[in-house]
Nucleic acid binder design. Structure first.
Length: 436
RNA sequence: GGAGGAUUGGCCGAGCGGCCUAAGGCGCACGAUUGGAAAUCGUGUUGGGGCAACACCCCUCACGGGUUCGAAUCCCGUAUCCUCCGCCA
């Protein structure tokens, strides 16, 4: 969420920047809502000040009159005036509430301002390639996709997944399930051990307020799974970014403790509304997948540097696994609602002969922190703004698909990256489903 | 699910209808003192908002309502924590 005042100060600059992501900012409308709110608050404040003075007068009059036995007519009149004031305050308060709600409703739906570093455009085709790491392997045979490999080995079972839950779910079996767990353990060990992240285990169901803090709501309700059971109305998290970032909602953090670096391995639930027909095969796009997520909270002015740091952590995952990938900078119009600058890391998928997104690392600036009420204060009481960043490090399913495909041999077996072996306990997946 | 108790400023803790613009202590910051420090003394120290304004004003004693001219204080509801019973992994 933006600070209305800052947005108005930016003026045409804000209009120009939001236009880059296809959002038309109504400056005049915003100005009107903002001043309506200010006027309403000013009026309530005046009335309340008057009311307090009136109450004081009544108190003094009552005290002065308490010694005499007569009913003080003056006191009755004073009380009557105070009572009238109260009614007027109530009316004025209703207007404040209405004005604030109107302003807030608009502010909550304005996306973050894209950084000038984000290229123009509104699709993945407009992304700018930053670097390629590794050479796509040249197979002396036609590489199979992860579905063919996984089903042949009996470690992936889409038929039974569909029986249980319908389309866009997967079942992993035996060494497949072990590989999932191993990848998660490997990533977590890397981030907590070498990159300095603190691991969390967090709720997978969160409130509407929590979803609003990171920007999933109110605009993207249709992307989420919602449970309205009993007297609770909770949402399944689409990524651990949501609980991790909101851990400090409505808190004032000691500035000297920043940056905070958090990680968690959680399931992610996405409705994938509007993606009918896309990636229907395999484990690339599911309603439920698991992912190790990275979140950083830092001083506002550090966020650019922090993004590079976090991107490095995501890339390390791929480098350690020896996977071929590239890094692109997303176009202004292709970024998520809360992001001001996003790098996508794309892994090479031999079966598709292309790079596919495996990590998205975003600098959200102060956008989410302002929504979620995350602030900072230094030892001298100086206030500071907080920036939030999030990135995948990495999703388990897509990583597994990349490993299967990039590390496959002609006979249908897969030789795992050396780094995974301590976590799996085996180094090869064989075509018959056994391990070695 | 049921019964009882609790919730005050960074922390401890007073407060039980107007003098709460929240006592006192601890901590912290700044200053004085000192060769320097400790001790001591002084000043300051929740967080938001209106406004050109560190002036002034409003809100904030878990949260939301209510009673009253006036609520930290009385009433109702909610949340969280603690104790006990039930249930359960």
């Amino acid at each position: 969420m933006h600070d209305a005042r800052l947005l108005l100060e930016l003026g045409d600059e804000a209009v120009r920047r939001l236009a880059r992501r296809g959002y038309t900012l109504d400056l005049a409308g915003l100005e009107a809502l903002s001043s309506r709110r200010a006027r309403a608050i000013g009026r309530v404040d005046e009335l309340r000040a008057e009311s307090k003075r009136a109450a004081g007068e009544v108190g003094r009059a009552a005290k002065a009159g308490s010694s005499s036995t007569e009913v003080p007519a003056e006191l009755t009149a004073l009380k009557e005036r105070a009572r009238e004031l109260k009614d007027r305050i109530r009316e004025a308060e209703d207007e404040v509430e209405a004005a604030e709600a109107a302003l807030r409703d608009v502010l909550l739906t304005i996306p973050n301002l894209p950084s000038d570093d984000a290229p123009d455009g509104d699709s993945d085709a407009d992304a700018v390639e930053v670097r390629r790491v590794g050479e796509p392997p040249a197979f002396g045979f036609t590489p199979r996709d992860h579905v063919a490999l996984g089903e042949a080995m009996g470690i992936l079972d889409f038929g039974r997944a569909a029986k249980l839950s319908g389309a866009r779910f997967s079942v992993a079996r035996g060494p497949g399930a072990v590989l999932e767990r191993a990848l998660a353990s490997f990533f977590l060990a890397l981030h907590t051990g070498r990159h300095g992240y603190t691991e969390f285990s967090v709720p997978h169901l969160v409130t509407r307020e929590t979803m609003t803090g990171t920007g999933q709501l109110p605009k993207f309700e249709e992307d989420l799974f919602r449970t309205g059971t009993g007297d609770r109305d909770l949402y399944l998290i689409p990524t651990a970014e949501v609980p991790l970032t909101n851990l400090h909602a409505d808190e004032i953090l000691p500035a000297e403790e920043l940056p905070l670096a958090y990680t968690a391995w959680t399931p992610c639930f996405r409705s994938e509304a509007g993606s009918y027909g896309r990636d229907t095969r395999g484990i690339l796009r599911l309603h439920q997948f698991s992912k190790v997520e990275l979140v950083r909270l830092c001083a506002a002015e550090e966020s650019g540097r922090e993004l590079e740091t976090m991107l490095g952590h995501a890339e390390t995952c791929l480098q350690e696994l020896g996977l071929v990938y590239r890094v692109v900078r997303l176009a202004a119009g292709d970024m998520g609602f809360a992001a001001q600058l996003t790098y996508d890391v794309e892994v090479w998928l031999p079966s598709q002969d292309t790079y596919r997104e495996i990590s998205s690392c975003s600098d959200c600036g102060t956008f989410q922190a302002r929504r979620a009420g995350i602030r900072a204060k230094d030892a001298h009481g100086g206030r500071g703004q907080v920036a939030t960043l999030n990135g995948s490090g990495l999703p388990i399913g897509r990583t597994m698909a990349a490993v299967l495909e990039q590390c496959q041999d002609e006979d249908g077996s897969v030789t795992l990256p050396e780094a995974l072996v301590p976590f799996t306990g085996f180094r090869r997946l064989l075509p018959d489903g056994s391990t070695d």
